[in-house]
Protein backbone atom coordinates (compact mmCIF):
# COMPACT_ATOMS: atom_id res chain seq x y z
CA UNK A 1 0.00 0.00 0.00
CA UNK A 2 2.65 2.51 1.07
CA UNK A 3 4.83 1.33 -1.79
CA UNK A 4 2.02 2.00 -4.27
CA UNK A 5 1.61 5.51 -2.84
CA UNK A 6 5.32 6.22 -3.18
CA UNK A 7 5.42 4.95 -6.76
CA UNK A 8 2.29 6.90 -7.58
CA UNK A 9 3.75 10.13 -6.24
CA UNK A 10 6.96 9.72 -8.26
CA UNK A 11 5.02 9.10 -11.49
CA UNK A 12 2.52 11.76 -10.47
CA UNK A 13 5.17 14.45 -10.07
CA UNK A 14 6.27 13.83 -13.66
CA UNK A 15 2.67 13.95 -14.83
CA UNK A 16 2.22 17.19 -12.89
CA UNK A 17 5.11 18.91 -14.64
CA UNK A 18 3.77 17.83 -18.01
CA UNK A 19 0.19 18.76 -17.16
CA UNK A 20 1.24 22.26 -16.09
CA UNK A 21 2.74 22.87 -19.52
CA UNK A 22 -0.35 21.40 -21.14
CA UNK A 23 -2.75 23.54 -19.16
CA UNK A 24 -0.61 26.64 -19.86
CA UNK A 25 -0.76 26.19 -23.62
CA UNK A 26 -4.41 25.20 -23.35
CA UNK A 27 -5.43 28.36 -21.51
CA UNK A 28 -3.25 30.79 -23.49
CA UNK A 29 -3.46 29.34 -26.99
CA UNK A 30 -6.90 27.82 -26.50
CA UNK A 31 -6.40 24.37 -27.91
CA UNK A 32 -5.63 20.91 -26.56
CA UNK A 33 -2.09 20.26 -27.72
CA UNK A 34 -1.84 16.59 -28.65
CA UNK A 35 1.84 17.19 -29.38
CA UNK A 36 2.71 17.96 -25.77
CA UNK A 37 3.78 14.40 -25.09
CA UNK A 38 6.37 14.63 -27.84
CA UNK A 39 7.88 17.69 -26.14
CA UNK A 40 8.61 15.40 -23.18
CA UNK A 41 10.17 12.87 -25.53
CA UNK A 42 12.22 15.59 -27.23
CA UNK A 43 13.54 16.75 -23.85
CA UNK A 44 14.42 13.20 -22.80
CA UNK A 45 16.35 12.56 -26.03
CA UNK A 46 18.05 15.98 -26.01
CA UNK A 47 19.38 15.19 -22.52
CA UNK A 48 20.44 11.74 -23.70
CA UNK A 49 22.35 13.28 -26.60
CA UNK A 50 24.19 15.65 -24.23
CA UNK A 51 25.05 12.89 -21.76
CA UNK A 52 26.24 10.61 -24.56
CA UNK A 53 28.31 13.40 -26.10
CA UNK A 54 30.02 14.25 -22.81
CA UNK A 55 30.76 10.58 -22.10
CA UNK A 56 32.05 10.06 -25.65
CA UNK A 57 34.44 12.97 -25.07
CA UNK A 58 36.21 10.68 -22.62
CA UNK A 59 35.33 12.72 -19.56
CA UNK A 60 35.24 10.71 -16.38
CA UNK A 61 31.95 11.43 -14.65
CA UNK A 62 31.28 9.01 -11.82
CA UNK A 63 27.79 8.92 -10.27
CA UNK A 64 27.20 11.56 -7.62
CA UNK A 65 26.72 10.07 -4.15
CA UNK A 66 23.89 7.54 -4.04
CA UNK A 67 22.45 8.58 -7.41
CA UNK A 68 22.79 6.68 -10.68
CA UNK A 69 23.84 9.71 -12.69
CA UNK A 70 26.89 11.99 -12.73
CA UNK A 71 27.23 15.71 -13.43
CA UNK A 72 26.65 15.33 -17.19
CA UNK A 73 22.94 14.82 -16.59
CA UNK A 74 22.80 17.99 -14.50
CA UNK A 75 24.40 19.86 -17.41
CA UNK A 76 22.04 18.13 -19.82
CA UNK A 77 18.93 19.24 -17.94
CA UNK A 78 19.05 22.97 -18.83
CA UNK A 79 20.36 22.17 -22.33
CA UNK A 80 17.41 19.83 -22.90
CA UNK A 81 14.99 22.46 -21.62
CA UNK A 82 16.45 25.02 -24.02
CA UNK A 83 16.46 22.65 -26.98
CA UNK A 84 12.85 21.60 -26.35
CA UNK A 85 11.81 25.24 -26.08
CA UNK A 86 13.43 25.89 -29.46
CA UNK A 87 11.58 22.93 -31.00
CA UNK A 88 8.28 24.18 -29.57
CA UNK A 89 8.90 27.71 -30.88
CA UNK A 90 9.85 26.33 -34.30
CA UNK A 91 6.67 24.23 -34.55
CA UNK A 92 4.63 27.22 -33.46
CA UNK A 93 6.22 29.49 -36.06
CA UNK A 94 5.96 26.93 -38.87
CA UNK A 95 2.52 25.55 -38.15
CA UNK A 96 0.41 26.83 -35.27
CA UNK A 97 1.05 30.57 -35.74
CA UNK A 98 -0.07 30.39 -39.37
CA UNK A 99 -3.24 28.54 -38.48
CA UNK A 100 -3.91 30.97 -35.62
CA UNK A 101 -3.43 33.91 -37.96
CA UNK A 102 -6.12 32.53 -40.26
CA UNK A 103 -8.44 32.25 -37.30
CA UNK A 104 -9.01 28.55 -37.78
CA UNK A 105 -8.10 27.77 -34.18
CA UNK A 106 -10.23 24.63 -34.22
CA UNK A 107 -7.91 22.99 -36.75
CA UNK A 108 -5.00 23.40 -34.35
CA UNK A 109 -5.90 20.18 -32.55
CA UNK A 110 -5.53 17.98 -35.60
CA UNK A 111 -2.45 19.94 -36.66
CA UNK A 112 -0.90 19.20 -33.26
CA UNK A 113 -1.82 15.54 -33.68
CA UNK A 114 0.04 15.51 -36.99
CA UNK A 115 3.02 17.43 -35.63
CA UNK A 116 3.23 14.96 -32.75
CA UNK A 117 3.36 11.91 -35.01
CA UNK A 118 5.90 13.56 -37.30
CA UNK A 119 8.12 14.59 -34.37
CA UNK A 120 7.91 11.18 -32.69
CA UNK A 121 8.81 9.38 -35.88
CA UNK A 122 11.61 11.85 -36.58
CA UNK A 123 13.08 10.94 -33.17
CA UNK A 124 12.58 7.26 -34.01
CA UNK A 125 14.41 7.84 -37.28
CA UNK A 126 17.35 9.61 -35.61
CA UNK A 127 17.74 7.58 -32.42
CA UNK A 128 16.40 4.18 -33.49
CA UNK A 129 13.80 1.95 -31.88
CA UNK A 130 15.83 0.56 -28.95
CA UNK A 131 15.19 1.97 -25.46
CA UNK A 132 18.12 3.82 -23.87
CA UNK A 133 19.22 4.73 -20.36
CA UNK A 134 21.02 7.74 -18.91
CA UNK A 135 23.13 5.44 -16.80
CA UNK A 136 23.68 1.73 -16.46
CA UNK A 137 24.58 2.04 -12.77
CA UNK A 138 22.60 -0.11 -10.41
CA UNK A 139 20.96 1.66 -7.52
CA UNK A 140 19.96 0.28 -4.18
CA UNK A 141 16.52 1.36 -2.98
CA UNK A 142 16.41 2.84 0.49
CA UNK A 143 13.84 1.39 2.86
CA UNK A 144 12.05 4.43 4.26
CA UNK A 145 9.45 2.34 6.05
CA UNK A 146 10.26 -1.17 7.29
CA UNK A 147 8.52 -4.08 5.61
CA UNK A 148 6.38 -4.76 8.69
CA UNK A 149 4.42 -1.51 8.46
CA UNK A 150 1.74 -1.62 5.73
CA UNK A 151 3.96 -3.56 3.37
CA UNK A 152 6.84 -1.14 3.75
CA UNK A 153 8.17 1.46 1.36
CA UNK A 154 11.39 1.42 -0.63
CA UNK A 155 12.47 4.35 -2.74
CA UNK A 156 15.57 4.78 -4.90
CA UNK A 157 17.64 7.97 -4.46
CA UNK A 158 16.82 8.86 -8.10
CA UNK A 159 13.11 8.75 -7.37
CA UNK A 160 13.59 11.01 -4.36
CA UNK A 161 15.56 13.57 -6.35
CA UNK A 162 12.89 13.49 -9.09
CA UNK A 163 10.13 14.13 -6.60
CA UNK A 164 12.14 16.90 -4.92
CA UNK A 165 13.12 18.67 -8.14
CA UNK A 166 9.59 18.43 -9.51
CA UNK A 167 8.16 20.06 -6.40
CA UNK A 168 10.89 22.73 -6.51
CA UNK A 169 10.03 23.49 -10.15
CA UNK A 170 6.36 23.88 -9.25
CA UNK A 171 7.16 26.29 -6.43
CA UNK A 172 9.45 28.29 -8.73
CA UNK A 173 6.68 28.46 -11.33
CA UNK A 174 4.20 29.66 -8.72
CA UNK A 175 6.56 32.47 -7.69
CA UNK A 176 7.15 33.36 -11.35
CA UNK A 177 3.45 33.60 -12.19
CA UNK A 178 2.47 35.58 -9.11
CA UNK A 179 5.50 37.86 -8.59
CA UNK A 180 6.92 38.79 -12.00
CA UNK A 181 5.52 41.16 -14.61
CA UNK A 182 5.71 38.51 -17.36
CA UNK A 183 3.96 36.00 -15.15
CA UNK A 184 1.14 38.43 -14.44
CA UNK A 185 0.91 39.30 -18.14
CA UNK A 186 0.53 35.59 -18.90
CA UNK A 187 -2.27 35.20 -16.40
CA UNK A 188 -4.00 38.28 -17.75
CA UNK A 189 -3.78 37.00 -21.34
CA UNK A 190 -5.18 33.65 -20.28
CA UNK A 191 -8.16 35.34 -18.68
CA UNK A 192 -8.99 37.75 -21.48
CA UNK A 193 -6.68 38.12 -24.48
CA UNK A 194 -8.45 41.16 -25.93
CA UNK A 195 -8.42 43.08 -22.67
CA UNK A 196 -4.78 42.14 -22.16
CA UNK A 197 -3.87 43.53 -25.57
CA UNK A 198 -5.73 46.76 -24.85
CA UNK A 199 -3.77 47.27 -21.65
CA UNK A 200 -0.55 47.13 -23.66
CA UNK A 201 0.52 43.55 -23.06
CA UNK A 202 2.58 42.16 -25.93
CA UNK A 203 0.49 39.03 -26.47
CA UNK A 204 2.91 37.63 -29.07
CA UNK A 205 5.67 37.74 -26.45
CA UNK A 206 3.33 36.12 -23.96
CA UNK A 207 2.66 33.28 -26.39
CA UNK A 208 6.41 32.78 -26.88
CA UNK A 209 6.91 32.79 -23.11
CA UNK A 210 4.14 30.20 -22.79
CA UNK A 211 5.82 27.85 -25.26
CA UNK A 212 9.24 28.30 -23.64
CA UNK A 213 7.87 27.69 -20.16
CA UNK A 214 5.64 24.78 -21.18
CA UNK A 215 8.38 23.15 -23.22
CA UNK A 216 11.01 23.60 -20.49
CA UNK A 217 8.73 21.95 -17.94
CA UNK A 218 7.95 19.22 -20.47
CA UNK A 219 11.67 18.60 -21.01
CA UNK A 220 12.16 18.36 -17.26
CA UNK A 221 9.29 15.88 -17.04
CA UNK A 222 10.72 13.92 -19.96
CA UNK A 223 14.15 13.62 -18.37
CA UNK A 224 12.60 12.56 -15.07
CA UNK A 225 10.47 9.94 -16.79
CA UNK A 226 13.57 8.71 -18.62
CA UNK A 227 15.59 8.65 -15.40
CA UNK A 228 13.03 6.59 -13.48
CA UNK A 229 12.18 4.43 -16.50
CA UNK A 230 13.51 4.14 -20.03
CA UNK A 231 14.25 6.75 -22.67
CA UNK A 232 12.12 5.63 -25.60
CA UNK A 233 10.23 7.30 -28.41
CA UNK A 234 6.80 6.54 -26.92
CA UNK A 235 7.75 7.99 -23.50
CA UNK A 236 5.78 11.21 -23.92
CA UNK A 237 2.93 9.68 -25.90
CA UNK A 238 2.26 7.23 -23.07
CA UNK A 239 2.04 10.09 -20.58
CA UNK A 240 -0.29 12.20 -22.74
CA UNK A 241 -3.54 10.69 -21.48
CA UNK A 242 -2.52 10.97 -17.78
CA UNK A 243 -1.47 14.58 -18.44
CA UNK A 244 -4.82 15.40 -20.01
CA UNK A 245 -6.56 13.70 -17.08
CA UNK A 246 -4.52 15.82 -14.66
CA UNK A 247 -5.24 19.05 -16.52
CA UNK A 248 -8.98 18.30 -16.69
CA UNK A 249 -9.10 17.19 -13.07
CA UNK A 250 -7.40 20.36 -11.94
CA UNK A 251 -9.64 22.48 -14.13
CA UNK A 252 -8.27 23.55 -17.48
CA UNK A 253 -6.14 26.66 -17.12
CA UNK A 254 -5.47 26.19 -13.43
CA UNK A 255 -1.75 25.73 -12.75
CA UNK A 256 -2.26 24.65 -9.18
CA UNK A 257 -5.03 22.35 -10.29
CA UNK A 258 -2.77 20.70 -12.87
CA UNK A 259 0.00 20.24 -10.31
CA UNK A 260 -2.36 18.65 -7.83
CA UNK A 261 -4.19 16.77 -10.58
CA UNK A 262 -0.94 15.17 -11.73
CA UNK A 263 -0.22 13.81 -8.27
CA UNK A 264 -3.80 12.53 -7.93
CA UNK A 265 -3.70 10.86 -11.35
CA UNK A 266 -0.31 9.30 -10.54
CA UNK A 267 -1.68 7.98 -7.25
CA UNK A 268 -4.90 6.75 -8.86
CA UNK A 269 -2.97 4.92 -11.57
CA UNK A 270 -0.72 3.31 -9.01
CA UNK A 271 -3.52 2.35 -6.61
CA UNK A 272 -5.75 1.03 -9.40
CA UNK A 273 -3.00 -1.19 -10.79
CA UNK A 274 -3.72 -4.13 -8.42
CA UNK A 275 -7.43 -3.79 -9.22
CA UNK A 276 -7.29 -3.41 -13.00
CA UNK A 277 -4.12 -5.38 -13.57
CA UNK A 278 -0.79 -3.93 -14.71
CA UNK A 279 -1.65 -4.39 -18.39
CA UNK A 280 -4.62 -2.03 -18.08
CA UNK A 281 -2.72 0.63 -16.14
CA UNK A 282 -3.05 3.14 -18.96
CA UNK A 283 -6.84 2.73 -18.95
CA UNK A 284 -7.16 4.20 -15.46
CA UNK A 285 -6.36 7.70 -16.75
CA UNK A 286 -9.19 7.34 -19.27
CA UNK A 287 -11.61 6.15 -16.60
CA UNK A 288 -10.57 9.16 -14.51
CA UNK A 289 -11.28 11.53 -17.43
CA UNK A 290 -14.75 10.09 -18.08
CA UNK A 291 -15.58 10.14 -14.36
CA UNK A 292 -14.49 13.78 -13.99
CA UNK A 293 -16.37 14.87 -17.11
CA UNK A 294 -19.55 13.19 -15.91
CA UNK A 295 -19.37 14.42 -12.31
CA UNK A 296 -17.59 17.76 -12.42
CA UNK A 297 -16.56 18.83 -15.91
CA UNK A 298 -15.07 22.09 -14.64
CA UNK A 299 -12.51 20.19 -12.60
CA UNK A 300 -11.43 21.01 -9.08
CA UNK A 301 -10.41 24.63 -9.62
CA UNK A 302 -11.68 25.49 -13.07
CA UNK A 303 -14.57 27.51 -14.36
CA UNK A 304 -17.19 25.82 -16.48
CA UNK A 305 -15.77 25.70 -19.98
CA UNK A 306 -18.12 25.28 -22.90
Amino acid sequence: MLQLIADGLVVGSTVSLGAIGLTLTYSLLRFANFGHGELLTTGAYAALAVVTAITAWGVDAPPIGPFSFGWPLLVALPVAAGATALVALAIDALLFARLRARGSAIVLIIASFGAALALRNLLLFVFGPLPEYYSREIQIAVALVPRGVMGGMRVTPDQMVVLGLALAAMVALHVFLTRTVLGKAMRATAMNPDLARITGIDTAAVIRATWILGAALAALAGVFAGLTGQVRTTLGFELLLPMFAAAILGGVGSIHGAALGGLVVGLAESLLTPVLGAEYRAASAFLAIIAILLVRPAGLFGRVAR
Binding site: A32, I106, L240, A285, P297, R306
Partner: peptide, 13 residues
Protein backbone atom coordinates in the same frame (compact mmCIF):
# COMPACT_ATOMS: atom_id res chain seq x y z
CA UNK B 1 -22.25 18.82 -23.98
CA UNK B 2 -18.75 20.12 -23.31
CA UNK B 3 -16.17 22.02 -25.34
CA UNK B 4 -14.90 20.24 -28.44
CA UNK B 5 -11.47 19.67 -26.86
CA UNK B 6 -13.01 17.29 -24.35
CA UNK B 7 -14.47 15.12 -27.09
CA UNK B 8 -11.03 15.01 -28.70
CA UNK B 9 -9.40 13.93 -25.45
CA UNK B 10 -12.10 11.37 -24.63
CA UNK B 11 -12.00 9.78 -28.10
CA UNK B 12 -8.21 9.71 -27.91
CA UNK B 13 -8.61 7.90 -24.59
Amino acid sequence: RLRHDYLAIATFG
